[in-house]
Amino acid sequence: MPPPAGARRRALRRWTPYLYLLPMVLLVGVFLIYPAVKTVWVAFTDATGTSAGSFVGLDNFTRLVEDPAFRTSVRNTIYWVIGALVLQVGLGLLLALILSNMRAGDWLKRLFYLPATLSGAAVGVIWFYVFNPDQGLLTSFMGTIGLESLTTRWLADPPVNTFAMIFAATWQGLGPAMILFLVGLQNLPREPIEAARVDGARGLRLFWHVTLPLLRPMSAVVVAITLINNFKVFDLIWVMTQGGPYRSSETLAVSMYRESFVTFSVGYGASIAVVLTLIVTILSVFYLRSMFRKVEVY
């Protein structure tokens, strides 16, 4: 009787697509999603390094609100995000516009991208030496050009230490933003631009009224990626200041690590992770929406 065999084959065919999904879902489910969900649970307990703790409701979150270190951390995180937007996205777009029309552009693109291949740890080490207030590259350079009065203890005086690290992060993160904008520029439809040019649009006006709006889907992606990455910055800060001195340069990611692994308030640390995740998720909705609208970007 053929039907069973045929039914089995049909069933197999129906399930085949899911077999393709299986390895990926398994890996991500076990190693990423399960731990993340578990962290959400831990955020509602008073777990420490040596005990799993018990359910404490919203205690951790009310403690957050009253913790001055958490407020500093939120403020610094905002600095990071704004700084990243202005410097990485702004400069990235500017560079992409300039370099796409420059003869030596290819080499410069490579140069600006190169720091992105280094690790956060290595970048932290390099800039640690650049910012040394006694002999560092920056201070001695400013001394040479007569701006000694503007120098400070770059990594010790808040909020300058956060700005200094944002600068180091820009050095590393500018390349990828620039590359994405270059891709966006390359994929712009020609017709509207040619039409605008025929109408006499030039330079800034052309850019502002035609190129930039056309570039919007890619801009949304770059903005979202930059935001998410800068919310998560950890290695760089940990190597350069460990969030110090006196917790003045901590961001949410650093506070979370510190509470969980330095003072072992695991439950409290998890609550910071949850807050951070909430913020990132809300911003990501913006990212995903723009991604799924019209254009399949990168």
Binding site: N132, P133, D134, Q135, R153
Partner: peptide, 8 residues
């Protein structure tokens, strides 16, 4: 009497 604690 002390070095700059941010340099050393």
């Amino acid at each position: 009497y002390f070095s700059d604690p941010a340099s050393v």
